[in-house]
């Protein structure tokens, strides 16, 4: 220990050199992968030890080869396409009115009193209870499925948009009025941009619910789609297909949310929050 290490007030630990910084950077990059890697190990272990049987939970290589097989035969793409189609159609069908009606309900007390109680009532119904109801009303065709997904997307979008409008800073509205902004200009230049954060939260929420509803809609009376693939695998004793379906769902669900999150970041670059400052610091 050199003399120079002694400082006023006590010892100072001899500092290790540069490697620590590299280790920190490397571990930081690996952080999101640690848990999945551990789970994968657990998976392999439980098959190896006989805690589960391969016909209940196939080994990772089997799942991978089934995935490749389905991909090369175009079957996976076909089901994926069907699911994405439904999802998109239903999502747009639900999210667009959700934003519009949310804006109206948020800015007009009268409109809110007119619409909101009904929507709150709908919200009270547990989401999956809608599935048999819709099948009853609209039959087992594509219509029922798209409406179901639309309903799932609508609720969070509407609720979040309405709340976002209500939480626009009053002070900003006052400034706008002080500078002579008419009602429409206030709506489009202040209320709308000011509610964007909340609207985007609602859109993300609506998307994840839409995913949930598309699965539910495909579990019953479907003939294609990833959810159907799940049921098909279950019925024909092909758990590897079930897993491929699950993983594809997870990847797509996560991927679509990531896309939306990226959009959110771009649109909300002006936000003065912890999140935006965290991103600026490396």
């Amino acid at each position: 220990m050199a003399v120079g290490d002694l400082k006023a007030g006590g010892f100072q630990k001899a500092r290790p050199a540069r490697p620590r910084k590299f280790i920190r950077l490397g571990l930081g990059a690996a952080l999101p992968w640690l848990l999945p890697a551990g789970l994968l190990g657990l998976w392999v272990l439980s098959l190896d030890r006989g805690w589960v049987q391969p016909y209940q939970l196939p080994a990772p290589p089997t799942v991978v080869s089934t995935f490749i097989d389905l991909l090369s035969r175009g079957e996976l793409i076909r089901h994926l396409g069907a699911t994405l189609n439904r999802l998109l159609a239903g999502y747009l069908l639900g999210a667009a009115p959700g934003v519009l009606l949310g804006l109206l309900a948020g800015s007009s007390v009268g409109f809110r009193r007119f619409l909101d109680p009904t929507v709150q009532g709908l919200r009270a119904v547990p989401s999956l209870a809608w599935v048999p109801l819709f099948l009853l009303w609209f039959g087992i065709g594509e219509q029922a499925r798209v409406y179901l997904i639309g309903l799932g997307a609508f609720l969070p979008v509407y609720l979040n948009t309405m709340a976002a409008v209500g939480s626009v800073d009053r002070k900003l509205i006052e400034v706008a009025r002080a500078y002579g902004f008419g009602r429409l200009k206030v709506l489009f230049r202040v209320i709308l941009p000011g509610s964007t954060p909340g609207v985007l939260t609602g859109l993300r929420s609506g998307l994840s619910l839409a995913w949930m509803f598309v699965v539910a809609a495909e579990l019953i009376a479907a003939s294609n789609g990833l959810g159907f693939m799940l049921v098909e695998g279950q019925s024909t004793m092909r758990p590897d297909r079930v897993l491929v379906s699950l993983f594809t769902f997870a990847v797509l669900g996560r991927g679509s949310d990531t896309l939306l999150a990226a959009l959110e970041r771009r649109l909300l670059v002006w936000r003065d929050t912890l999140a935006t400052t965290q991103e600026e610091r490396p």
């Binding site: 002070k171 900003l172 006052e174 400034v175 002080a178 500078y179 230049r189 202040v190 941009p193 000011g194 964007t196 002006w270 936000r271 003065d272």
Partner: peptide, 14 residues
């Protein structure tokens, strides 16, 4: 008439 408030009150998205 132009008004300057206690807080700047700039529209944060512009």
């Amino acid at each position: 008439v132009a008004f300057v408030f206690q807080e700047p009150r700039l529209l944060p998205w512009l």
